[in-house]
Design a binder for these strands. Structure first.
Length: 243
DNA sequence: GACAATGTTACAGT
DNA sequence: CACTGTAACATTGT
């Protein structure tokens, strides 16, 4: 389940490995990320863009498997392997990326508290968990990190934006930074299929406090972690700590 | 064979 | 029109 930290991990690794290499006459000049989209920029202005969705993997010089959907071969013989067991992921080549850049809400690691507060004012009745996952509201956060952020902030996932106190909004804002930064530091979360560009699993699952921990004890208070469907998605939280 | 996984989108409702 | 909620869709392993 690649979300912002996983895609960012892959971006940073591929940046080191493929910049300067050439695919079909086009030289790679850099890699960017927007929301959960990975963008490979070529010298001629075109870009290759990827969305890994549930089970996508991008592995540099990996071995093809039964789930390999595409192999990009560089002119020095090195390879970029795109695997995707569930086939929800996609890639395409585009002449320009303006549409992609503008189609999402702000990047969570690039906004300040004021901006975040102003965003929330526009969506007073939305529940906070689906809101954090809404890519048009804020980009790059999915189910894992919305659960972990709200646990760290001690806010119940069903709370509506307009009921949040200033202190709680600050906590959510600060923990968006903290959790995403830490997850990037640990190369992301490998829940099922995710591996980084080296084919290695991310280590952040060790630090998950609530995601997929239904029935286990809360590490803060010992209460039993619960799971609820909110906005059609599973939400994991501590019914005691998160009000 | 039903179900769950999740990001995205279409559409219904307020 | 703006916002919110729900369902459907892509596919496959369990």
């Amino acid at each position: 389940m690649p979300e912002l930290p996983e895609v960012e991990t892959i971006r940073r690794q591929l940046q080191k490995k493929i910049v300067g290499r050439v695919i079909g006459g086009r030289k790679v000049i850099g890699l960017r990320r927007r929301a959960k989209i990975l963008i490979i920029d070529f010298e001629n202005g075109a870009s290759l863009i990827f969305h890994l969705k549930l089970t996508g993997q991008l592995i540099f010089n990996g071995k093809p498997s039964q789930y390999t959907r595409k192999v990009f071969i560089f002119d020095d013989g090195s390879k970029l392997i795109f695997n995707d067991a569930r086939k929800f992921g996609w890639w395409k080549e585009v002449k320009e990326t303006k549409k992609i850049e503008k189609g999402f809400g702000p990047e969570p690691l690039e906004i300040d508290l004021e901006t975040f507060k102003n965003l929330l004012i526009k969506r007073p009745n939305a529940k906070i968990k689906p809101l954090l996952m809404d890519q048009k509201f804020i980009a790059g956060i999915g189910n894992i990190y919305s659960d972990e952020i709200l646990y760290a902030a001690k806010v119940h996932p069903s709370r509506r934006a307009k009921t949040l106190k200033d202190k709680e909004i600050e906590q959510i804002f600060q923990n968006i930074r903290k959790i995403l930064d830490e997850a990037i530091k640990y190369q992301g979360s490998s829940v099922e299929y995710y591996v980084d560009a080296c084919g290695k699993k991310g280590n952040f699952v060790k630090y998950h406090k609530v995601y997929q921990k239904e029935g286990q004890k809360c590490s803060r208070c010992g209460a039993i972690i619960k799971k609820l469907k909110i906005g059609g998605r599973s939400a994991h939280f501590c019914p005691n700590c998160q009000k």
